Amino acid sequence: MSLIVRDYDEAIDFFVRAVGFELVEDSPATTNDGRPKRWVVVRPPNAESGILLARADGAEQRAAVGEQFAGRVGLFLDVDDADTFDATYARMRAAGVEFVSPPRAEPYGRVAVWWDVAGNRWDLRGPS
């Protein structure tokens, strides 16, 4: 999937430093009309799929930054156990990730909602 961002380097820094993802690829590329862009992919460590960080190109795309999910949670970062949830939550907070509220219990497990660098909402999710 693609995530529209304002700036490649700002998004890479956020996802790698603050969230703990790994930078999989950062290669030069060109748009369909020949302008320079970058192919930037990040993903959680050991994950098989990643997120393409796509810099907004034009007014319509800039307006979509942070609004890709119409203000709803649209992305999920799942962890395997309660200890990992607590450690991930603490590390992300210490790195400056802004959480909507403290973790809470839901029927499906623990959850804490956070904003990414573009203003999209994510769930950090783990088991009860």
Rank of each mutant, 00 (worst) to 15 (best):
L23G: 07
P28Y: 13
W122N: 02
R104V: 13
V100A: 07
F21P: 01
D78K: 10
G66K: 00
P36D: 09
V40G: 02
W122Q: 05
D83E: 11
V40A: 06
G20R: 14
Q68R: 03
D13K: 12
A70H: 15
R125S: 06
R6F: 07
R62S: 03
R104P: 00
E25C: 13
R17E: 13
D83N: 02
E10A: 14
E22N: 09
I12N: 09
N120I: 04
A105M: 14
N120S: 07
L124W: 00
L75T: 06
R125T: 10
S49G: 04
E48N: 14
L77F: 08
G74C: 01
Y8K: 07
G96V: 13
A118F: 10
T84S: 07
R72C: 03
P127C: 01
V97G: 15
T31F: 09
V97P: 05
A18K: 10
G109D: 14
A105H: 15
A95C: 15
E25F: 02
D78M: 09
V42C: 05
D33H: 12
D81H: 15
P102Q: 03
V24R: 08
D33L: 07
D26V: 09
N46S: 01
V65S: 04
A54W: 10
S101C: 05
A87Q: 10
N46Y: 06
E25P: 01
V117N: 08
V100Y: 07
N32P: 02
E67W: 07
D13M: 04
D116S: 03
D9C: 07
A56E: 00
P107F: 08
R93H: 13
W114M: 11
A105E: 11
D83P: 00
N120C: 04
E98D: 09
R91G: 08
G66Q: 02
E25W: 08
R17L: 05
D80Y: 11
M92L: 08
A90I: 04
S49E: 12
F21S: 00
D116Y: 05
R104W: 00
V24N: 03
A94D: 15
P127I: 07
A82L: 08
F69A: 06
V117G: 01
I4Y: 06
W115A: 12
M1R: 10
V42K: 02
D7M: 02
D80A: 08
F15C: 01
F85S: 00
G34R: 14
E10M: 06
V42A: 02
A94H: 01
D123P: 05
P44D: 10
D123M: 03
P36F: 03
A54R: 09
A70Q: 12
L77S: 05
V111T: 15
L23T: 11
V97Q: 14
G126Y: 08
F76G: 03
F85M: 02
F69M: 09
S27N: 11
V111W: 00
R38P: 04
A90N: 08
A87E: 12
R43P: 00
R91K: 11
D13S: 11
S49T: 15
Q68C: 00
Y89E: 09
Y108T: 11
R125L: 11
G20I: 14
V97I: 09
A64L: 14
P44M: 03
M92H: 05
S128N: 12
